[in-house]
Structure formats: C-alpha cells, structure tokens
C-alpha cells in the first residue's frame, strides 16, 4: 500500500564514517544522525563530499571505516531489496531514457516491490497513482519526459522516487539546472510531502538560503566531516559560513520565512567596510 504511518519509523545514522573512491579520503570520521520525520539539508563547498556522503547513506558506497546504520542494522549487512524498500535515492541530474512516458518512468519506481510474476499488483497501481497525484503529474502521465519543462521533469523523477514508497528519501541536488521558480516549486513539493506524508527527507542543496528556509536540520560539511548540524536558526552564523565556504557573509532574518538569510560580502567590499568602520 502507499506510504502510511503504520510502517515502522526509519532510523538512519552513521558512525565514524570514512569514505574514499580508492584515492584520498573524501570523508573522515564523520558521525551523523538523521532526525526522523524532518528535512535535513546538507550544504558545503564544491567537492567537500556532500554527494559522497549521500551515496554512502544510500548504500551505494561501502565505507572504508565505520558504518551506516539503517533501522538499527549495518546497511551493508541488509539485502539490497530490504534497503530499497526503506530508503530511496534520487541522484543528481538523472537522465531518462529517450521518449519514455511519465507514467512509464514512475512505474519503474515500483521495482523493489515487484517480482517476475508479480509486476503490477493493486498496490503497485495505487502507489503509482498516488505518486502522480502528489506531484501533480497525473495530467501529464502520458506525456513524454523529453517534452516536459525542467521543473515538470524533476517532478516526474520525484514521483518515481515516491512510487518506490520509502519512508526515507535522499535527494542529491534536486534543484540543479532549474530556474528559481522551478527550484521553489520542487522544494515546496518536498516540504509538502514531508509535512503531509511524514517522510524523512535528506537532500543536498547548493543554495544556502533555500537550505535555511526548508531545513529543520541544517548540516554543514567542511574538512571532510560535519562542521555543524542543527536547526538553521541555531547553527547558521557568519563564523560557520565563513568556515565552510571561506567567504564572509552577514546573516539577517529572511523577511519572508524568518529563517537565517546569508548575504555574501565581496572581499573588496569587506575591506572598504573595515577601513570605514575604523
């Protein structure tokens, strides 16, 4: 059946995690606990290991040391299908096969729940219909994914991840290549899914202010590990952002959401200000 509150609440955490692709360590001695039922957003400079962390949390990368613990057990000791029913991942900038229809794409999300002779059960159909409805893609179910706008396309992919019907959803930069309106559209959708469906969301975002606005758990990565994690209004400070991005900012209240708003200071501007204040 589509996601319901009776499924056991997921727990996801990592202990003493070190990650590498064979070369230098990308993440070292990282510990994280994903708060259930909340939106966690990972931010950090390019190449700081955000995506790598997300891949490790989704069982796509075996840790060099430490472990990812899903529902109390080492994720690498669980079968791939068990994990796939608890945790879904939407990779960065996914590419759909040429000419594939939205409904076809979303149906593929049911793979972990299907078997050779059981490929379209009533619950498959219900989950796909619900995913299309929640993302507002039901009208476009028979359109080709190629013909959609960027925002619609991303919604189609999110519908696919929704059809997988996992209480935990990991998304790697779900807003890349989208214009600002489509970015907000996607983030609003994810927030709505979190609030109405109680799904735990972990995503990597590039935009600091969007992270502040949508996260209830703000995770900042620097120096191959987590620099700070917590509610954005508590952890986002000019010092933290300067440490993470090496860029001075001032932090004010977002006039719309009331969350922290980081405004970058150009280095030259900062110098002028510094001299002016002396």
């Amino acid at each position: 059946m589509p996601f319901d509150a009776s499924t056991p609440r997921p727990t996801l955490l990592a202990q003493d995690l070190s990650l590498t692709y064979g070369g230098p360590m990308i993440v070292e001695n990282l510990g994280i606990e994903v708060p259930t039922g909340e939106i966690s957003v990972v931010v950090g400079a390019n190449g700081c290991g955000k995506s790598t962390l997300l891949r490790a949390l989704a069982r796509l990368l075996k840790p060099a040391t430490g472990a990812v613990i899903l529902d109390g057990h080492d994720i690498h000791r669980q079968s791939t299908k068990t994990v796939a029913k608890r945790l879904g991942l939407l990779p960065q900038a996914p590419r759909a096969p040429d000419g594939v229809l939205v409904s076809d794409l979303v149906r593929r999300g049911r793979y972990p729940h299907q078997h050779l002779f059981n490929q379209w059960s009533a619950s498959d159909e219900a989950a796909v219909n619900l995913a299309l409805e929640l993302t507002g893609m039901d009208e476009m179910a028979d359109s080709s994914v190629d013909e959609l706008s960027g925002g619609q396309r991303q919604r189609a992919w999110i519908a696919m991840a929704l059809a997988q019907d996992t209480p935990l959803m990991l998304l790697d930069e779900p807003t890349t290549h989208l214009d600002i309106a489509h970015q907000m559209e996607v983030l609003d959708l994810l927030q709505e899914l979190n609030q109405t469906e109680g799904r735990t969301v972990v995503m990597v975002l590039h935009d600091l202010n969007q992270a502040c606005r949508y996260a209830s758990n703000f995770i900042a990565m620097a120096d191959k590990t987590i620099e700070a994690a917590g509610h954005p209004s508590e952890v986002v400070t000019p010092e933290l952002i300067e440490k993470v991005f090496g860029m001075p900012v001032i932090v004010i209240d977002d006039p719309v959401a009331g969350t922290p708003l980081c405004i970058p200071m150009a280095r030259s501007g900062q110098k002028e200000r510094a001299t002016a204040s002396v």
Binding site: A58, L60, T80, G88, L89, P91, P97, L105, R108, Y111
Partner: peptide, 13 residues
C-alpha cells in the same frame, strides 16, 4: 536505463 545510482538505490546489483 535510469542510471547506475538510481538502479543501485532500487536494490539492483
């Protein structure tokens, strides 16, 4: 067809 990461996340080897 959906890509390696997406397939692996759906439980495929």
């Amino acid at each position: 067809q959906l890509g390696d990461d997406a397939s692996a996340a759906m439980g495929m080897r």
